[in-house]
Amino acid sequence: MPALIQVNDLRRSFGRVRAVDGLSLSIDAGEVFALVGPDGAGKTTVMRLICGALRADSGSVLLAGEDLARRPEHARANLGYLPQRFSLYGELTVLENLRFFAELRGLPTREWLPRSREILDFVGLADFGERRAEALSGGMKQKLGLAAALVHRPSILLLDEPTGGVDPVTRQSFWQLIIRLLGQGVAVLVSTPYMDEAARCSRVGFMARGQLLLQGRPAEVVRSLQGRILEVKAEPRRRAEELAREVSEVEDVQAFGDRLHLRLRAGAGSGVEQRLAAQFAAGGVECSRMHQVPPNLEDVFIAQLQAEAPVSTVPPVDPDGAHIRNQPQRRAR
């Protein structure tokens, strides 16, 4: 069976900015592909190119085998799209909103009501059909947005940062819905700032400056940092961070909740843990835990960005005019 989403060498520039610069990906039925990357990397432009809201300069998009450029109506019939800022009609009820989207999507009149009830049931809004959209909570609006994108039973779903600014309870139930859709054979492309969400996807792609720098199954993607992440729990944490940065094998230090993740240079020897322990002891830091952990996607994300130093990355904080240690060199472009 061919991939439901097939993107080949997609390019789109705005003036001199190459927003999407030779991007290829393919997503099969039942797969979810996570697009992650810094702000301005081109993720939203990719979504807009795939849904046909923007025309590509070159390259192709096939949706369920239909060429978006040649037969846009056929290609888009298979597609549901939840943009970052979706609009609902606040003064219309939940069902009226769905009817609007159903008719827009060409659902026959006799079908819209049973389908709307079915999809409201699926997203957990069955009891709210008569409520005006503006009276829904933030989480419920998000689910209505998803229902609207799904009303015509698309086999392809594009979700542009669907959980940005959404609380953990809503995020949890939103993702349980996505996982259920995969079970029904839908192919999903989702962009997200949450690495824990990317970790549960079939595949993940890191995007920067319009290109996919790296893509693969989450377990493959993190392999590049295998054995190079030390998790440290130490107090006071800020002091521990400073001390760790002074150890030459330590390439970077990041806080993960109440722990620190130390990224070691490739090929760092096993003596580094002892050196760190000595460093902490001498510096008055109490270290209650230090052990190697499997790298996670956020470790990879940070390492990728530091290696690339894309233009859109916020510069390091530099309050004293001094250079911050351990910033990687900007790569010549």
Binding site: D39, G165, R238, I302
Partner: peptide, 24 residues
């Protein structure tokens, strides 16, 4: 009030570095 909504993971981290600097 939700100062880090919508920014990427790296920007979010350095924003918190700033918050801590101000707190210190």
């Amino acid at each position: 009030d939700e100062p880090t909504s919508g920014v990427d993971p790296v920007a979010r981290r350095s924003f918190w570095d700033l918050i801590y600097r101000l707190a210190e």
